[in-house]
Simulated scan of single mutants.
Amino acid sequence: MKIAFVIFDEFTSLDFIGAYDPITRLKTMDFLPDLEWDICSFNDTITDGTGLIFTPTKVREPLTKYDLVIIPGGIGTTSLINNSQFINWIKTSGTCKVKASVCTGSLILGAAGFLRGKKATTHPNYFGELKKYCKVIDKRVVDDGNIITSRGVSSSLELGLYLCEKLSNYEAKEIIRKQMDYQHQ
């Protein structure tokens, strides 16, 4: 299993870290020892919405080799949905088994054409924008087959734990949840 965590300028760090932490524990806690991941970007150096600098491990490489692609949200999505070069790069994930997003990352999935005929969610302030691409569902995590979306920034942990169960099993997810001391059910 190979995962691409996508980052971009002005993304929300917790959207990324909230999903990244529980999912990578699948490997570090020996539930999926063959799990691999990359931090993928369209640019060499990325600055989140607060000025925190991130260095991706893969830059502008096609996303075709990944089983799962996860896209965070953040204020940067508002310009990226109209950036044809970035969206064309995201479209290289078309053959990936599952695409997931946190918050306004779903707008990027929508702009890439992955939400046609699907149900998805995002931060409530962006429900109107998301309606351009799909049927909007007001839930913390929405699973519509090969597309899994989550609501606002705090739902990133729920998405990460949900994906832990989907990639491994309920028991692994629960052990990881308890190790993280995450109380939400």
Rank of each mutant, 00 (worst) to 15 (best):
M1L: 14
M1G: 13
I7F: 06
F16C: 09
F16I: 10
G18M: 02
D21S: 13
R25K: 15
R25Q: 14
T28E: 15
D30P: 00
F31E: 13
F31Y: 15
L32Y: 03
D34T: 12
D34M: 10
D34Y: 05
L35T: 05
L35Q: 01
D38V: 01
I39Q: 08
C40Q: 06
S41W: 09
T45L: 15
T47S: 11
T47V: 10
T50N: 13
L52S: 12
F54C: 04
T57Y: 07
R60A: 15
T64G: 05
T64M: 07
D67K: 09
L68I: 14
I71A: 05
I71V: 15
I71C: 03
G73C: 11
G73N: 08
G74L: 07
S79T: 14
S79G: 13
N83I: 08
S84R: 06
I87H: 02
I87G: 02
N88V: 05
K91C: 04
T92G: 02
S93I: 06
K97W: 08
S101R: 04
A111M: 10
A120M: 08
P124R: 13
Y126T: 05
G128L: 08
L130W: 02
K131A: 12
K132G: 01
K132R: 14
V136H: 12
V136T: 03
V136L: 09
V141W: 04
N146M: 08
N146V: 03
G152P: 01
G152K: 07
Y162G: 00
Y170F: 09
E171N: 11
E174W: 01
I175L: 14
D181S: 15
